[in-house]
């Protein structure tokens, strides 16, 4: 007996639905498991049984992280570093991206190519040189030093990303304003920036998330627990005391991730296009 065509399609769709639901559950296990651990009291994790929900649900771990650990100091440090980096990256990146989008000049293609090449160079490879350099000019252990390093890390991405978007804005709009006597600064602030809002937002958010998540440079360049960012603090804690207190670490991880998750899902539609825009065009 053979199934009718409609029944076969329905069976296939059911199988697909089950497959994706199982896949999603498997995908979410690492984070869900951490969440149940964060919500459990210390004794629960010692039991060898796996339970869907913690036996004694409690918010104690979150309280401890927020109140007893220097969580807010780290949050403040992360905020200072990420906001300063975003500001510096946009202030220096927008005029550069605008120039390379609107002007045609000798050396333009060459510079764009060199920038792409530099972007292929991972900062970790020259991390020691940067460290020594900042040390010699006295900028090690300062926010300013790290902000400049972070801005450099995102500079090429920011410039290419914004340039690619500026390229799509028709130049005629600006020409009308030019006839009215607007100068370059007025063109950018009054016409280009409002039109380019999506790319400004994506660039800013990508920079923000990069700084928020960066721990390698933060630990090396800003040592000392009172200057740690959230990422550096979390990293340093799991390497020391949180190893023995996995519920606390799980709670801290979740607290640190929530803002990033919210921002990501708010701008998710821009993410894919924003990420590839710069890498495609030569």
């Amino acid at each position: 007996m053979s199934m009718s065509k409609g029944a076969r399609t329905r069976a296939r769709l059911t199988a697909l639905n089950i497959f994706y639901i199982v896949l999603i559950i498997i995908t979410l296990i690492p984070v869900y498991y951490a969440l149940t651990i964060a919500l459990s009291s210390g004794g629960d994790i010692l039991s060898s049984k796996l339970t869907l929900l913690p036996k004694n649900m409690t918010l104690d771990n979150f309280k401890t992280v927020l109140l007893e650990k220097p969580f807010f100091t780290w949050l403040k440090n992360s905020a200072i570093l990420s906001v300063s980096t975003v500001a510096l990256a946009l202030l220096t990146g927008v005029p550069c991206a605008y120039s390379f989008s609107r002007f045609r000049f000798k050396g333009r293609k060459f510079v764009l190519y060199i920038l792409l090449l530099l972007n292929a160079f991972p900062a970790i490879l020259s991390m020691f040189a940067i460290y020594r350099m900042l040390n010699l000019v006295g900028l090690i252990n300062t926010y300013a030093g790290l902000v400049v390093v972070y801005t450099g890390g995102m500079a090429v991405f920011a410039m290419w990303n914004m340039k690619a978007y500026f390229d799509t804005i028709p130049i005629e709009i600006e020409e009308a304003a030019k006839i009215d006597g607007a100068n370059d600064l007025q063109l950018v602030t009054r016409i280009v920036l409002p039109l380019a809002r999506p790319t400004i937002i994506v660039t800013a958010v990508m920079t923000l998330i990069y700084v928020w998540n960066e721990y390698v440079f933060a630990i090396q360049f800003l040592p000392g627990a009172e200057r740690y960012t959230l990422a550096a603090g979390l990293y340093s804690l799991q390497a020391t005391e949180y190893t023995r207190n996995w519920p606390l670490f799980a709670a801290a991880s979740i607290l640190v991730s929530i803002p990033v998750l919210i921002i990501f899902y708010l701008i998710q539609n821009h993410m894919a296009s924003g990420l590839t825009a710069g890498s495609v065009k030569g």
Partner: peptide, 25 residues
């Protein structure tokens, strides 16, 4: 000169934390 002038701030940062460190390395 305008495009170079507008790009100078970003280029200073790129030279300082990307280009120079590569040369120093």
């Amino acid at each position: 000169l305008a495009p170079w002038l507008y790009s100078t701030p970003l280029f200073i940062i790129i030279v300082a934390v990307i280009l120079f460190p590569i040369a120093y390395t």
